[in-house]
Design a protein around this nucleic acid. Structure first.
Lengths: 132, 132, 132, 132
DNA sequence: GTGGTCTAGACCACC
DNA sequence: GTGGTCTAGACCACT
């Protein structure tokens, strides 16, 4: 469990924690059934309020990434079997994709360069997943 | 100038305005030199306070998308000629790309499907840009 | 944190706040990681609205001088390691240098006197930085 | 008389006009007694309102750079004989010098580099003055 | 009429 | 408690 708060990242701390845990699930560092550190442990090691860690865990439960049970540690949930509906995918990812390319455009990047960046990223992700 | 505030969109109104104007610059609907509506006009037509529009315009200026000068309407700035540094690109887009694929993973989408979505979006963007 | 609004200074209050904080970072009175007063506190102590302080803090964030995160006090950011590009330096400082000497000329000051003034100022700055 | 409004320069147009005329007086392009273009001429050639040019000329008169007489063109005034008092110099230039070095500091420029920049600028100014 | 600054007060999300 | 957003209304400087 390597989680770190990036001071330069302006997003709320709990969002950073959520994202990093989700990334570790994706990469395979965390597998279904694995226990997460207790709220207290993680809070201490990150130097943040327990409250903050707790709201991160709650968010992860909402998204079906972890399961929480009173008195027990949070556990990574089973991966979802059935993929989201096309509609949901479009709503959640479509907007973000659009914004990503708009952002790229205003940074002066061509669509082809963007494509390259995306491919590189996808490959890196695949390899990372493979080696685990 | 077609801008609309989506009440269901949880992001701040001024961010929605910023994004939509940036999209219109990307699509070619707005070209360098074009004048934007005054903060009062746009505010009225959107049913929001002029200050909200103003903060959107300020954000756009920060990002080099528009130029603001006292006494004159906001104008679309000329497009940046030299693309951002590799570093900046990586910081700004890299993180977002990573999160996008993580999001996709947790929606149960394979990387190949993700690639398809991305390609579709890129093509749509290219055609839109071309037809203008 | 000694900040004061100069009523005779025609520049906006928020700019004065920005400048004074940047000076204190330069002099070493404020160091990376140091927390700034809350917008409410500083506003009260200066006798200005908290929004005025807030817009100063936002400007400082734009310039990379402070980091802002919801729920936490503004903090002095770590100093930039890699200096600005020659281009940026020329645009930002070149114009101001040019105007400074033009101003000096019209005040009847010779370039040599100007040089003296500049040297004096530079030395004063160095000593101030050194003694901290 | 080569004057141009820089669209990227956020300062008021009249300020840009004022500065450019003062620079041309400094460089020797404009000499005491020289007539400036009429408000109408300059306004047309710059594509700005007469009002804007007029307020620039008024500002120049305030600063003793030009003389205005009803029905006549603005004329470059005699250069000031007696330099400004030390006090005035310190008030006008001291603050700006301080801000310049603070700006430089936050751009990651060392005081020595700053010194170099200043020297370069001063030399360029001297040569320009000399060749006229 | 345009953007820019300031005040005032509200409510929210985060820590 | 903190900063972030939004409203509302005032006044100013610039075009």
């Amino acid at each position: 469990m390597l989680i770190a708060i990036d001071e330069n990242d302006e997003r709320p701390m709990y969002v950073q924690i959520v994202n990093q845990i989700k990334e570790q699930v994706q990469s395979g560092d965390l597998k279904p059934g694995d226990a997460l550190p207790s709220v207290r442990e993680l809070g201490e090691s990150l130097g943040v309020n327990l409250h903050t860690v707790h709201s991160a865990y709650k968010k992860l439960r909402e998204q079906g990434v972890v399961t929480l049970r009173l008195g027990q540690r949070a556990k990574i949930a089973k991966l979802r079997q059935n993929p989201a509906s096309k509609e949901e995918i479009e709503t959640v990812l479509g907007t973000r994709l659009k914004e990503l390319t708009t952002e790229a455009f205003h940074l002066g990047i061509s669509l082809d360069e963007m494509r390259g960046l995306f491919e590189d990223h996808l490959e890196a992700t695949q390899h990372k997943g493979a080696k685990k």
